[in-house]
Design a protein around this nucleic acid. Structure first.
Length: 965
RNA sequence: GCGCGGAUGGUGGAAUGGUAUACACGAGAGACUUAAAAUCUCUUGGCUUUACAGCCUUGCGGGUUCAAGUCCCGCUCUGCGCACCA
């Protein structure tokens, strides 16, 4: 018997696949359905991939392999993300030119990928730093420029001191550079941007319909951060200027007691009065020095200065002071806000610190669900108080439990004339009258009023109560008797906080009181009913919001407005290793795009490519290259010296994969129409960068008619991290990586590793790496090998009909299970199913041999295992007598008639507890099964002679006998 | 703080509302062997029990249901993302 030698057979088959170009795809072959799937473009930085990457590449390979076997013309592409900061930094570390550094380690990557047996079409390999590729990246830049989607702007942007370049928002993670992990700061520079915000709405809207991992969709939606609201113009008092603010809460406009502008706001100088100029200027220069990180780290303690100017609130002509503070961001909205301290936490903090008025304009609103208002009944307004009495000795609260109704309440009452309109007096009086307690200390007034709506049955009217809650502490037990009438109505009870629940208490606004007893927040930031808001009083927030905006629009003082958190994509980099931005700056003509016939703008060779620092791009030194002629007027002009963000290169590569050698266009739209869009099995990065940028570009191409779908990735599944032995994410920078070559070289080979990578956990769940698991899958493949060898060596099968049937049941079940699991992308359970099947075959091994059943069992096992372990299956496929490759057009069909066996196991429960199991023929009628179930010995023990109240039968599964206990 | 996940044996993990712990790893026992490795077979959630069997168990507390890991309500812990976005 031949022994399983993975190292030998893997080498052999990899060469055969290479020589035969087994995985080469002919795009023009439309005789079969197509399948296009891929994983991320690998970046070549470092010694090679680790097993975490392996899991990602593995996954798409299995998916594509399965499709290829199922009769698809299936394409699994490969290429290299070779431009950009990561590669350049890697080169600097190596002390080499980026091109040399890249080429030096590329071989290692290729070796790893080939040794892992991925079914890439190597004949179509691409690389983003190849001029034949970036010629088209530049062409796309020019197209964007022509459509007004690439523009230059001076503005404060993230700057990484270590990497000496600006970064996009998406490349700043928690205030740190995505590459080097050092803190970044802001610099005010003139930079190139792609106008992704133009597509924000479109992208956002399409997100819900994508067949993507939900988490990524959520991250993208949050990143885009759409907010609906309004812009409101405040006139500046004593000036013809106006200050425009953005707010999502126009319903709180009457509560604006001050305004705040960002230190970078353009009106800063105009607003600072002579008296305040010095302090304003000091504050601005201070804010400019402070890094963004420092701003964040200062525990968000609010700082700011008064400008000396006032704004006029268009709704009520209130004169409100204008402040400058760095908690208002210049890049969002209009860089200025109206501050409503009563209804916004940040404004509240600021107002408290600087002693500014807090004006409440929105009251919380609750409708009593137990006694809801009835339509068409009169609405009566009441001023109410809730007196909540706390006994610190027992840690209990005083409540009234009514005798005639299922009501429990705090002390509730109205404010009477005799109280002088004072809610504290009213509450004390009511507590005394209803409970007799005399000695109380006011702890706190529980915030502002709350509006509670309910139906008062005894008066047949709807009531809208404006309720104040007051918390008292009991000083001592001294108590007078209460009236006999009241004694007949209710009992006094003391309840623990844990017993004061929504179900027990008759109080629609209970949650608000409990919240306010526990916390000292003192402000209400949600929606409610308007108060102190002139003609809008009594309206709900949503109603008022609309009416106020309409009212503002009429006088031109405001308009509804949508704002996004997402900013435009900053793409210039002051670094050498990237696609040069194809722009020529001419003194007369301005920024002129390089004409198509002059593309590519080839990246010049320079002596010293290292970053120069101080906003100077590395390409400045290539003076021969920089100095050129304006394509428009011919006068001397200078080339743009910034290069493009590496993400630009990787935003369209899946399109180039479909036409990698085209030198007339970026890709042929006809090919894309047939092959796009792609299924994407992505690594755990880039959720808001690459995946968003690509969607933006694809939509742009779609508008130009260059692609047939508005979305680039039909299915996108996002894998979770592989954790290293130390429990942290596996990565080069943490120095905890496991090299797949190491495992393969230790004798287990690629197939065992591949199977283990998929077996370890579902793809979208993070999983700790444990190399000790590989021998387990190696053992499994060995068992497959042994099974096949015994099958080959045996003659005619000696099995009887029953065994044949058992073999077929296992085989057909397996074919169905693996086919479905692959479709549903649950590869870990398909491997379990294969292991189970092999275990089953082992039990029947004595009968192995040539027969219809065993032929099918062995062949179908090899076919379903093949995407996971392509080498061993190809080898055994040949050994059992096939001359073609297993990897094309070989997938088992199953027949449902083999899936069920003749006998069923029925579980019998008594009162839902498992008491017996019976084997019955699948033919047996339900009534017979129920009857049989009830006479089982162990069942009788528990039914104890009683008649069942119910017998539930779930066909083919279980009987539940319910008896009274 | 906000948003999105996760929590099941010693470990990784399975379970369309219907036998919880599949499949593996690890551990233990046995067979083969001069011996070891490899291989094969069996055992393996906890407690009680010679056995039959019983009780308990899916982070915690409630609820719905004949039946809950799964659905609903309220928590705890944990991972990830965003974070002064008005």
């Amino acid at each position: 018997m031949k022994r399983y030698n993975p190292v030998e057979i893997e080498k052999k088959w990899q060469k055969v696949w290479d020589d035969n170009q087994t995985y080469k795809v002919d795009f023009s072959d439309h005789s079969k359905p197509k399948y296009y799937g891929m994983s991320m473009l690998p970046g070549v930085t470092g010694a090679g991939i680790h097993v975490g990457h392996g899991r990602t590449f593995q996954f798409s390979d299995i998916k594509v392999r399965a499709k290829r076997q199922q009769g698809y013309n299936a394409y699994n592409p490969i290429g290299w993300d070779s431009f950009g900061l990561p590669v350049e930094n890697f080169a600097i570390k190596l002390g080499k030119n980026p091109r040399e550094a890249h080429e030096e380690v590329l071989g290692r990557f290729k070796e790893q990928l080939k040794r892992l047996g991925y079914s890439y079409d190597w004949s179509k390999e691409i690389s983003t730093s190849d001029p034949a590729y970036y010629r088209w990246t530049q062409w796309i830049f020019v197209k964007l420029f022509e459509h007004g989607l690439a523009y230059q702007k001076q503005s404060p942007q993230w700057w990484c001191e270590t990497d000496q370049t600006v970064l996009a928002n998406e490349q700043v993670e928690g205030g740190k550079c995505w590459r080097c992990g050092n803190q970044v700061s802001k610099r005010n520079l003139k930079q190139w941007f792609f106008k992704i915000t133009d597509y924000a709405d479109e992208i956002l809207e399409a997100t819900d319909d994508l067949d993507w991992t939900e988490m990524v969709k959520t991250m993208q939606k949050n990143w885009i951060g759409r907010s609906e609201g309004a812009e409101v113009d405040f006139k500046v008092d004593g000036s013809d200027k106006k200050l425009t603010v953005f707010t999502t809460r126009p319903d709180t406009l009457f509560g604006a007691t001050f305004m705040v502008i960002a230190p970078e706001h353009e009106l800063v100088k105009d607003l600072a009065t002579d008296d305040n100029r010095k302090s304003v200027e000091d504050y601005i220069s201070q804010a400019a020095c402070k890094s963004e990180i420092e701003r964040m780290n200062e525990n968000r303690e609010k700082t700011g200065v008064f400008t000396g100017s006032y704004g006029i609130n268009p709704v009520n002509s209130a004169r409100v002071p204008i402040w400058i503070a760095d908690y208002v961001l210049s890049g969002y909205g209009t860089g200025a806000i109206m501050a409503v301290p009563a209804h916004d936490e940040r404004d509240f903090e600021f107002a408290k610190k600087f002693g500014i008025e807090v004006k409440e304009v929105v009251l919380p609103h609750r409708i009593d669900t137990k006694n809801p208002p009835i339509d068409d009944k009169e609405i009566v307004i009441r001023q109410n108080i809730h007196g909540i009495v706390y006994n610190p000795k027992t840690d209990e609260y005083l409540c009234l439990e009514y005798k005639d109704f299922p009501w429990t309440t705090f002390v509730v009452g109205g404010v009477e004339e005799s109280d002088g309109g004072d809610i504290v007096n009213a509450a004390k009086r009511e507590i005394y009258e209803e409970t007799g307690y005399k000695n109380l200390k006011l702890m706190k007034v529980l915030g502002g009023q709350v509006v509670a709506e309910y139906y008062a049955a005894h008066k047949n009217q709807n009531r809208r109560g404006f309720v104040n809650g007051l918390l008292f502490e009991l000083i001592d037990d001294e108590q007078d008797d209460i009236s006999e009438e009241d004694q007949g109505k209710y009992n006094l009870v003391w309840l623990k906080m844990s017993d004061i629940t929504k179900d027990r208490m008759t109080c629609a606004e209970l949650d608000i009181w409990l919240d306010r007893i526990k916390s000292n927040k003192g402000l209400y930031t949600e929606e409610g009913i308007l108060t102190n808001s002139g003609e809008f009083d009594g309206m709900t927030s949503s109603e008022a919001r609309e009416k106020i905006v309409v009212w503002l629009e009429k006088d031109g003082n405001g308009r509804s407005k949508v704002t996004y958190k997402m900013r435009d994509w900053l793409i210039s980099r002051q670094r050498y290793w990237g696609a040069p931005i194809p722009i020529i700056h001419c003194e007369d003509c301005g920024a002129v795009p390089v004409p198509d016939n002059q593309l590519p703008v080839v990246l010049p060779e320079v002596e010293d490519f290292k970053p120069k620092g101080g906003n100077v791009s590395a390409l400045e030194s290539a003076t021969d290259w920089v100095n050129t002629a304006c394509p428009k007027c011919g006068k001397p002009a200078k080339r743009e010296t910034d290069t493009m963000d590496g993400y630009a290169c990787s935003s369209w590569y899946f399109l180039r994969y479909l036409d990698p050698f085209n030198d007339k266009q970026a890709w042929d739209p006809e090919i894309e129409k047939y092959w796009g869009p792609v299924d994407y099995y992505n690594g755990a990065d880039h959720a808001v960068a690459h995946l968003l940028y690509s969607r933006f570009w694809q939509r742009f191409f779609f508008k130009l008619g260059l692609v047939s779908h508005p979305e680039p990735f039909k299915r996108m599944m996002y894998n979770a991290y592989i954790l290293a032995a130390d429990g942290t994410k596996m990565s080069k920078s943490r120095n905890n990586v496991v090299d797949p070559l190491e495992i393969m070289n230790s004798g287990y080979g690629a197939d065992s590793l591949r199977v283990y990578e998929m077996f370890i956990a579902p793809y979208d769940m993070e999983a700790p790496w444990d190399t000790r698991g590989v021998p387990g899958t190696y053992r499994f493949l060995n068992r497959v090998w042994t099974l096949a060898q015994e099958y080959i060596e045996a003659g005619e099968s000696k099995s009887d009909e029953k065994t044949e049937r058992e073999v077929l049941t296992i085989a057909h079940k397996l074919a169905k299970k693996v086919t479905e699991d692959i479709e549903n992308e649950k590869f870990n359970t398909s491997i379990s199913a294969m292991m189970e099947a092999v275990n089953g075959y082992y039990k029947l091994k004595d009968s192995i041999g040539k027969s219809a059943a065993w032929d099918y069992a062995i062949e179908s096992l090899l076919m379903v295992l093949s995407p996971f372990a392509p080498h061993i299956t190809e080898e055994l496929w040949g050994q059992i007598g096939h001359s073609d490759t297993i990897h094309i057009d070989h997938w088992p069909k199953w027949d449902d008639k083999y899936l069920q066996s003749d006998m069923l196991t029925i579980v019998i429960q008594v009162n839902s507890k498992l008491r017996a199991k019976i084997e019955v023929s699948s033919e047996m009628p339900a009534d017979d099964i129920k009857r049989l179930a009830q006479v089982q010995e162990n069942v009788l023990k528990y039914t104890d002679g009683k008649q069942p109240t119910k017998v539930i039968y779930i066909p083919g599964k279980l009987v539940n006998i319910v008896v009274a206990e």
